[in-house]
Design a protein around this nucleic acid. Structure first.
Length: 866
RNA sequence: GCCCAGGUGGCGAAAUAGGUAGACGCAGGGGACUUAAAAUCCCCCGGUAGAAAUACCGUGCCGGUUCGACUCCGGCCCUGGGCACCA
């Protein structure tokens, strides 16, 4: 035959050209077909595609193509989460405007996505930094202002005293600013908040209708929302008539065991007390040098100091000290907690450290003493040491305490949420301007609709010392829309989660310039399949759910939830290598430049640099990142093996939810497979294509077995790709089938027709993963048209009928043999066959049979007395 | 610290509803083809004992439920993700 070699580079470019010319993936609303909206999380345009993107978008593309072959009208859009911090950092480095950097990154990454053969509808492309996009979130925000769903309040940020700017949590390293190295300070500034807590209950309840979401993600969101019920209790401040410290507790049953109150270091009580207490002032100052990140606060050493303030127990009048403590957060609840060391472990440790009293008031069920000599007793039980409440259990105690407190007007039952309102202000330049105006005469007001959008000037270059917007007079100064006097514009920009909270809806109405969304949004929404990293399980997905409800209540969409089904993909990892120089500085090397050295068991000892043979240390298999220099560039692989091989490997190496460890050798294995498919199709077609076997003519035993395998595989692959979404096992099944097909040699015209049928099915099954290869081979097999428009092949039930079954036979649960039985054999004859099998008789001879178990189609277990 | 996952051969993994542990692939070993190499094709490949048949052990650790546990239950260890200004 003419030697036709597999040349992915030219082949893939040619197929991509056809898709482009025929507008293959441009999607229109079409009521004659079931719609399927398949969405992958849009990328931040960081410069170039990384493997995590490749994985995300390949999964989405495979699902999209599979669903299209099921006859659905598939929408798969793509866009750019284009505002954000990295653009400002790059701008500072290159002394260029973030806009320029962002747009050129977008252009490059778009060509990369196209070279992967992803079937996106590019006519719907969105970049969130474009005014046509962000004007609508400004508009929605002004509507929320009118509805009272946003407000301003003081809130803490990480402040770099040298660079005079607000730092993101990730810019605080060991309590110091990443650029200046100065210890961070906490600073209170006025910021905008959106009342997500007004929707807390609905966000919680509606999780129950998200059947297509992983349980794990729903659990995380439930815990994040953190609904609890308890009491809010007021402790009167001694000597200050009419003043109280309010606390919220979920354990009111322990109220009689309170030994102190703990308030945040930035609680008004702390501040007031510190005025005449230099030691306390110093303590509070010291505590202010910790980042605002909860993980930092929760893991630091618990410290506190007596404020000297005293409160009265609301029921007994007992005098209770008030401590200022670094682990109490002002932004949580009331910024104060009641401490019961006997029944809370953190309070216990704190009390031990500062020699505060530990008063047990709860007994374990059925016991008459409680041991708190080494740890708190944190379970619920029966009250004692609690005066009139002795003997009560939790529920009764809650009611009784609530009644007693409410009689004195010092407490009431309350439902609380851990969820806090969404702080959306950022003191940054490269973001969407918050559309608000401050007039000295008229106050704070939204920018009127006819003045939207508030345009972000795109030519500014940040210098690291605060937001350039705040320094730009022509941006800042404006006229008051009410009185016409001089006014100031808000110079903060939105949290970038704002943009990513509604982009999924805008794709449907992306060219609408009269409204945020139009009727097409309800045609496509909700998203049928959403795919993205597990790291977005809480924040992004919760904010997007919230935004959807805000848009619904604004009359923009009808559905309650944006994402019907969610697939959370795992990260892409690679091995890492480093060396340490005399000063302790680590240098990281690309895994491509290192030859691992193994011991005889295969454990990695160290590596040798391919360049000069220097020894380097193994840093384990970790997330691909720039800082660890262990990223693998997808572009190189596309050039070397083609997009199909890369796509196939990334889908084969692990199930989508799991982390994926990169292996160059694994890619080669997939390349071999692709080549084998190529060669088998060509060697079959060498002697001409034939019509596929239809299941009519009788087949030889071998041919029948092969056809069974083909249709079993088809059944499995359809199930794996559709219901199970385990693409790795689908590909493994295709590999098994290829192995069988390679061994089979067609002896006559009927068997050649069978091979034709088998190859057509194989090519179609693989097409979601290897769309270019399949397209070309489809034509080689004598077919015309686009594979993506071919209907998914149907399983021939007749091909699945088996006459014989292989059953495992166990004795006392241990595998001892196998038997072949007729497919329609009954239980009695199967058990008898098992008992008369030579291998089995050895194990049951002369023993008392206790039980005979037959699991239909699977196994026999004979239980005998030992 | 808190919340959520995961842990199976030398490696990535499979076992879908409690029923053959290790499919498929990688690496490795042996062979065929070749002047040779590459490519390709075939065979072997969890551990221990054994020439083999086979037996025993084996799914992070300890214990439990069951005729039968990678799978269910209780406790522990380790690794990863998130923790509200990275996206």
């Amino acid at each position: 035959m003419a030697d036709v070699h597999y040349q992915p580079q030219s082949l893939e470019a040619a197929i991509q050209k056809i898709w482009h010319e025929q507008n293959t993936f441009v999607t229109k609303e079409d009521d004659s077909k079931e719609k399927f909206y398949c969405l992958s999380m849009f990328p931040y345009p960081s410069g170039k595609l990384h493997m995590g993107h490749v994985r995300n978008y390949t999964i989405g593309d495979v699902i999209s193509r599979f669903q299209r072959m099921q006859g659905k009208n598939v929408l798969q859009p793509m866009g750019w989460d284009a505002f954000g911090l990295p653009a400002e950092n790059a701008a500072m480095q290159n002394h260029a405007a973030p806009a320029e950097w962002t747009y050129s990154n977008i252009d490059y990454m778009r060509t990369q996505l196209k070279s992967l053969g992803l079937g996106f509808d590019w006519s719907r492309e969105i970049a969130t930094c474009h005014p046509d996009y962000y004007r609508w979130e400004q508009w929605l925000f002004t509507k929320l202002m009118e509805k009272g769903l946003v407000y301003r309040k003081m809130s803490q940020v990480n402040w770099d005293p040298v660079d005079q700017c607000v730092l993101a949590n990730e810019q605080v390293i060991d309590g110091k600013g990443w650029r200046s190295g100065a210890p961070v300070e906490r600073k209170d500034i006025v910021q905008w908040f959106v009342k997500i807590t007004d929707y807390a209950e609905e966000l919680l309840q509606d999780l129950d209708q998200l059947d297509g979401w992983p349980e794990q993600v729903k659990t995380m969101q439930r815990n994040w929302i953190g609904k609890s019920s308890g009491l809010e209790i007021s402790f009167p401040i001694e000597g200050r008539e009419g003043q109280f410290i309010k606390v919220y507790t979920t354990r009111p049953d322990t109220l009689m065991g309170v030994s102190y109150l703990a308030v945040a270091t930035d609680h008004p009580v702390s501040h007031k007390a510190s005025i005449r207490n230099p030691a306390l002032a110093e303590f509070i100052e010291a505590c202010s040098h910790v980042s605002t990140a909860e993980a930092d606060i929760e893991t630091m050493e618990k410290q506190g100091m007596d404020t000297g303030v005293r409160v009265l127990h609301p029921l007994t009048g007992e005098v209770i000290p008030v401590w200022s403590a670094n682990f109490v957060l002002m932004s949580y609840g009331t910024g104060a907690v009641m401490s019961v060391p006997a029944h809370d472990q953190r309070d216990y440790e704190f009390a031990q450290k500062y020699a505060l009293p530990i008063k047990p008031v709860i007994l374990p069920e059925g016991a008459d003493t409680v041991d708190v000599s080494s740890a708190a007793f944190t379970e619920k039980g029966r009250l004692f040491n609690s005066g009139p409440f002795d003997g009560l259990r939790f529920e009764q105690a809650l009611e009784a305490m609530a009644a007693a407190l409410s009689a004195k007007d010092l407490g009431e039952k309350q439902t609380n949420y851990r969820l806090r309102d969404w702080g959306v202000s950022r003191q940054r330049y490269w973001g969407c301007p918050i559309p608000a105006i401050y007039c000295p005469a008229c106050g704070v007001m939204p920018v009127p609709e006819d003045q939207l959008p508030v345009l972000l000037p795109e030519d500014l270059v940040p210098d690291g010392a605060g937001s350039p917007l705040a320094k730009l007079e022509e941006f800042k100064n404006c006229d008051c829309p009410q009185c016409g006097g001089r006014a100031k514009r808000e110079t903060d920009t939105f949290d970038t989660f704002f943009e990513s909270s509604w982009y999924y809806a805008r794709y449907a109405s992306r060219d609408c310039n009269t409204a945020m969304l139009d009727a097409r949004a309800d045609h496509w929404l909700p998203v049928d399949q959403y795919i993205g990293g597990i790291e977005h399980a809480i924040l992004h997905l919760l904010y997007a759910r919230f935004f959807h409800k805000l848009m619904r209540d604004q009359g923009l969409v009808r559905s309650d939830e944006p994402f019907k089904k969610l697939l959370t993909q795992g990260m892409v990892l690679a091995s890492s290598w480093f060396s340490v120089d005399a000063t302790g500085k680590q240098t990281w090397y690309s895994p491509l430049d290192v030859e691992p050295v193994l011991d005889e068991k295969g454990t990695i000892l160290h590596g040798l640099l391919k360049s000069d043979g220097r020894q380097v240390q193994y840093g384990g298999v970790i997330k691909m990142s720039k800082s660890k220099n262990n990223g693998i560039d997808p572009q190189t692989l596309i050039e070397q093996y083609g997009a199909d091989t890369l796509r196939l490997y990334i889908m084969f190496a692990a199930p989508p939810e799991q982390t994926l460890e990169w292996s160059d050798k694994g890619v080669e294995g997939c390349y071999r497979f692709v080549n084998r498919v190529w060669r088998l199709v060509h060697s079959h077609c060498e002697s001409g294509v034939v019509a596929a076997y239809q299941g009519k003519e009788p087949l030889s035993k071998e041919a029948q077995a092969l056809r069974l395998k083909v249709h079993e595989t088809l059944q499995k692959v359809g199930d794996d790709m559709g219901r199970r979404q385990t693409f790795n096992t689908a590909i493994a099944a295709c590999m098994e089938l290829l192995n069988e097909l390679t061994k089979f040699s067609a002896q006559n015209a009927i068997e050649r027709a069978l091979l034709q049928e088998s190859l057509e099915i194989l090519v179609l099954m693989l097409s979601p993963m290897t769309p270019h290869l399949s397209q070309v081979l489809w034509q080689t097999l004598g077919q015309s048209g686009l594979v993506v428009d071919v209907a998914w092949p149907k399983v021939d039930e007749n091909a699945l009928v088996k006459s014989q079954l292989a059953l495992m036979v166990q004795v006392n649960g241990k595998l001892r043999g196998k038997i072949e039985v007729a497919a329609d054999a009954d239980k009695t004859s199967i058990l008898s066959a098992a008992k008369h099998d030579e291998a089995i008789m050895k194990f049951i001879d002369g023993k008392v049979m206790l039980k005979e178990i037959y699991v239909p189609g699977r196994l026999v277990n004979l239980v005998v007395q030992d």
